[in-house]
Write a protein that binds this DNA or RNA. Structure first.
Lengths: 197, 197
DNA sequence: ATCCCATGTGTACGAGCGTACATAACGGGG
DNA sequence: CCCCGTTATGTACGCTCGTACACATGGGAT
């Protein structure tokens, strides 16, 4: 009977919960399924997370860092000289183009806030975080709009099985920038050749 | 033992399913809960809808007509002389401002397509329907962009408990229109006073 | 060294679930 | 009028679930 006194038990349960949601969705999340995935007894998951909501809050907060990691991997996003819409479209492509389970996982937890008020503050944290990042390059209103359209494009891709079109995303994001196209000298309306399907 | 031979049994089950989802969410949807809500025996729901996915497809398809009804109630949307962003923002306000359970219901079924491939064609139908409506006023690319940003704004409102800001929505939608602001004579970039942070 | 409590473990209960299936009523076609 | 397939009904099985709770354990404070 090993592993009495396991200081990182709680963290390992969160990791297991994320793997469970990635594999089976929120519908497959239960104290038992997480316990099995983490290889701990049932009582251990109920002890650390009395409610499944508690567990989801912890999982969503940790999953959000996944997107933050993708953003951090594209430092050009913070470079004031770079083409903001182009960079955003590229980052989105990198996120959506990789393993779809990662995106599904984050979105499933994110969207679960619709019915679970406990998750809403965490969802708001994420939106505010991305918004703050973008606000540094434009202004708060535009930043919120960019976040909204990023969300909307992701939804269309994930919900309707449409492939992601990076050129389309860049065009839409470009139109959202406030001033009449003076920011990067490239006026809106001229679609570059589609570099991504 | 009344109601042997009930020709509209199937439809009444769909209506009951929608009420169940509106009240308890998809997590509360089961053959039994629907049977209780529709006041029919358990065997009746399993007979007409072998799988819960079947039931959800029928419910989502019927729920989509709810939004279509809101759109139909604003004929100005189809008037080529009207201010498209303004009308869209108004329609969205009417939808979000009413009983929130209706919006939650439709979005919950819509978002369920993320994990249930059976729902994806129905979700795509909805997006294409709204897109076609808007394409008649602009062009297909802009129409898709408008749908995306409408979705994104709804998500932000529903998921983060932020109140809906119609002026903000109008501003964002205006920026999405293709040509340099010649469509309605109102150029982008002039922000109305920020009524929400 | 001892005590105490946060942490870990095993088991049981009652409820709800999808599913299967044997049977009953109905009503249109013969 | 009768017959038969579609529709409707009731019940039961096996499973998973959240929850509760009694008991074991071990390390930090004293």
């Amino acid at each position: 009977m090993p592993r009495r006194h396991d200081p990182e038990r709680r963290q390992r349960i969160i990791d297991a919960a994320i793997r469970v949601v990635a594999r089976a969705g929120i519908a497959g999340l239960s104290h038992r399924s997480v316990a099995a995935e983490a290889d701990v007894p049932l009582g251990s998951t109920t002890y650390h997370f009395t409610t499944l909501d508690d567990l989801m809050v912890a999982a969503l907060r940790q999953a959000n860092e996944g997107f933050a990691r993708v953003v951090a991997a594209h430092p050009a996003l913070s470079d004031p000289e770079s083409d903001l819409p182009g960079e955003l479209a590229r980052v989105l492509g990198a996120w959506l183009g990789g393993d779809r389970t990662g995106v599904e996982l984050e979105y499933e937890l994110y969207l679960a806030a619709l019915r679970r008020p406990a998750l809403r503050p965490v969802a708001a944290e994420w939106a505010e975080g991305v918004g703050a990042l973008l606000a540094a390059r434009t202004d708060p209103v535009t930043a919120r709009a960019l976040v909204a359209v990023l969300d909307g494009i992701c939804l269309q891709v994930l919900l309707t099985d449409t492939p992601y079109d990076e050129a389309y995303a860049r065009e839409v994001l470009t139109r959202l920038l406030p001033a009449p196209g003076t920011r990067d000298g490239r006026g809106p309306g001229s679609l570059p050749p589609p570099t991504a399907g």
